[in-house]
């Protein structure tokens, strides 16, 4: 917060601003392109949220379209679509957060128990690799496993007597998406936990050795408790974005296959379809606004709670 300089009489704000510009003008100049970027591509679209209250037409644009009050929102809640997609978004995100965190911590503990540096380096590199593959490529990979006639997994399941038509059976997709999420992100997610484990004072383990602790005991009584603040922080990062579906993932994998919408359609894919397929810009913007406002309120509450319960884990 601004502290008044004792050497000179307290200047009025305008003078203070000018003096600061004169002293550090170069540094402020450096920030200008970035500020301009955020202004144009983040703040201007916030103003564009008025589309949510318009019967927007591409021809008349944002300044010429007719305002229709809260009709878009009314309609949105009437159809009931919004509850389905919000439910899916929350459900999938909870599954993702839960299972990727579990798996990442598990992997991190496994890696920390490996003594051979070569083995550790190579296997860790392999486990991170899927993180750098785009979801479009993963969707192609997935085809090789779940295609009804040629896919390896689909064929194997059929042989076992459990034929599953993955591209028509919405019920299996939450599980499938969780597996893909773990495949893609668990190794990468483990990095931050591995870093925390590396930072643990070795004397703690030595003391446990003297007391005759087994390695399993050391894992459960030392390593995991020390990881707790990191786990909470990473979970909060995820929870803070719980209203945002992973469009890149879901749309690349599911696309416009309406047979799977029941379990996979999230707010973001719904907003996209509403805009591109139905060209209902007002409704789409209203849905987006619903998401942004809810997401914002939610992250504020989460952060407030975190600061109360575990101040080290607060996001900001």
């Amino acid at each position: 917060m601004p502290q008044s300089n004792t050497a000179v009489p307290k200047p009025i704000p305008k003078q203070r601003f000018l003096r600061e510009m004169k002293q550090n003008g170069f540094l402020y100049l450096l920030t200008l392109p970035g500020i301009l970027f955020f202004f144009v591509f983040s703040y201007v679209p916030m103003g564009g949220l008025v589309i949510a209250f318009q019967d927007y037409s591409m021809r008349y644009g944002i300044f010429g379209s007719r305002f229709n009050g809260v009709d878009n929102f009314k309609f949105l809640f009437q159809t009931g679509d919004i509850w389905r997609v919000t439910g899916n978004t929350l459900f999938l995100n909870i599954l993702f957060i839960l299972f990727t965190t579990l798996m990442s911590v598990f992997l991190a503990v496994l890696f920390s128990e490996v003594r051979s540096r070569g083995f550790k380096r190579i296997t860790q590199s392999i486990s991170i690799l899927p993180n750098f593959v785009s979801w479009t490529v993963i969707a192609l990979f997935l085809d090789a496993f779940i295609d009804p006639t040629t896919g390896m997994l689909a064929k194997w399941l059929a042989r076992m007597g459990y034929p599953v038509d993955f591209y028509a059976n919405a019920a299996v997709w939450p599980t499938l998406l969780v597996f893909l999420r773990i495949w893609q992100g668990a190794g990468y997610g483990a990095i931050v936990y591995i870093a925390t484990i590396v930072g643990i004072d070795p004397q703690i383990y030595e003391a446990a050795d003297i007391d005759g602790a087994t390695r399993l005991q050391k894992i459960f009584r030392i390593t995991i408790p020390i990881l707790k603040p990191t786990i909470i922080l990473m979970t909060l990062f995820g929870v803070g974005r719980i209203f945002y579906g992973d469009f890149g993932m879901i749309y690349a994998l599911v696309g416009d296959n309406s047979l799977l919408f029941k379990t996979t359609d999230v707010i973001d894919t719904y907003v996209y379809r509403m805009m591109r397929m139905l060209r209902n810009y007002g409704m789409s913007a209203a849905t987006g606004m619903f998401q942004s406002v809810l997401g914002f309120l939610f992250i504020m509450v989460v952060n407030w709670l975190a600061r109360k319960l575990e101040p080290d884990s607060a996001l900001f």
Partner: peptide
């Protein structure tokens, strides 16, 4: 002096956004 304000200007965009439609139109 104003680095806190500029940081917040950028940080806020991670908390709230206009969404797809306004960005698309822009």
């Amino acid at each position: 002096r104003y680095r806190g304000a500029i940081s917040f200007f950028a940080y806020f965009t991670m908390l709230f956004n206009g969404g797809l439609v306004p960005t698309y139109m822009l």
